[in-house]
């Protein structure tokens, strides 16, 4: 609705909106900025009172240490070294890059499997009328109501029995449980919106159901595929509880587990801890900001139905 307003109220409105925007920005970005600022401070600077909101002598030392040890170019400081001395590299530093690699492998695999499993299933639910369609929908809905912590105990026992503890495979399988139902929901609501006639035209044109999917709907579903892929990636990248139970050594630990380990390690400085946090934050935040449009439309599609 456009109603012409006099100048003064319009300025007032803009000022109010500006103020509200600043408040929101401060609320949303403040904590993250503090995290970032802390990661760039030296061990000495970070314990100053009052805190330095902006680092006086910003340093990338923490990040350098993470990459150098992770790539085998430097060694963590030997045990017994005084952590407060400059240049101390905690032993967990060497685990961060491998953990990042683990997170990446898990997240990418889960994303690919989500699409491979979710797309055909969503197409069937969205476009084919079959007996049991309602039941399938309810089953998917129900999985979203079950708390993940309720799945932890049985999954742990099964994974242990199969001898799969401390493996990336166990994580990948468990993450399918928490991501696939949501993916199917988002994609199914997308397919449902597509005109039925397109499906029918393609079948008359000589496409089997599978070919309709690959030749007609997949090219059209790109935005939904991007959104679903992102959700699966972010959920896997960020997941903590299951990883905490299933992983034991650096061989399978993901980034959240290693970062959580650092938080309870009192020999590690706050600045290093924050640097590790920043490392874990950068990939998901970049993805979220770049693909904001896809994410918002995907979230609403999934939520309205779920």
């Amino acid at each position: 609705m456009i109603v012409p307003r006099p100048i003064a109220p319009r300025m007032l409105r803009l000022a109010a909106l500006g103020l509200a925007s600043l408040l929101l920005l401060a609320y949303v970005l403040g904590p993250v900025m503090w995290l970032l600022s802390s990661s760039l401070q030296t061990e000495r600077e970070i314990v100053s009172i009052p805190p330095h909101w902006i680092p006086e002598s910003p340093t990338l030392a923490n990040f350098k240490a993470i990459f150098a040890t992770g790539l085998g170019l430097a060694r963590p400081s030997p045990a017994g070294t005084d952590p407060s001395s400059g240049g101390f590299i905690p032993s967990v530093a060497a685990n961060l890059l491998p953990a990042m690699a683990n997170s990446f492998i898990v997240a990418v695999t889960v994303t690919i499997l989500n699409l491979l499993i979710g797309v055909p299933a969503a197409y069937a639910i969205g476009k084919i009328r079959f007996r049991g369609r309602g039941l399938t929908l309810y089953a998917i809905l129900a999985t979203r109501v079950i708390p993940d912590i309720a799945l932890v105990v049985p999954l742990f026992l099964v994974v242990r029995k199969l001898g799969m503890l401390d493996s990336l495979a166990s994580l990948i399988i468990a993450y399918l449980a928490i991501t696939v139902p949501f993916s199917v929901f988002v994609l199914a609501s997308f397919f449902e919106q597509m005109p039925d006639d397109l499906d029918r035209a393609a079948r008359v044109d000589g496409c089997s159901r599978l070919r309709v999917l690959t030749h007609v709907y997949l090219p059209l579903a790109r935005p939904a595929l991007v959104a679903v892929g992102l959700f699966a990636f972010l959920a896997s990248w960020n997941e903590f509880l299951l990883a905490l139970m299933f992983t034991q050594t650096a061989a399978s630990q993901t980034l959240p587990i290693v970062v959580a380990g650092i938080t309870s390690d009192f020999t590690v400085s706050f600045s290093f801890l924050n640097a590790a946090g920043v490392l874990a934050v950068v990939p998901p935040v970049l993805l979220a900001v770049i693909f904001e449009r896809y994410i918002v439309s995907g979230l609403t599609a999934g939520a309205v139905k779920g």
Binding site: P195, D197, A201, A202, R203, V204, D205, C207, S208
Partner: peptide, 29 residues
């Protein structure tokens, strides 16, 4: 099934493939 019948169909909504050119729409079958 539909894709094994020697049948062509014109739809009220036309149901053209939005991501294909006119040529490819006609050629698809």
């Amino acid at each position: 099934p539909a894709h094994r019948r020697d049948v062509a169909m014109v739809f009220q909504s036309y149901a053209l493939y939005p991501h294909k050119s006119v040529f490819e729409n006609i050629a698809f079958g």
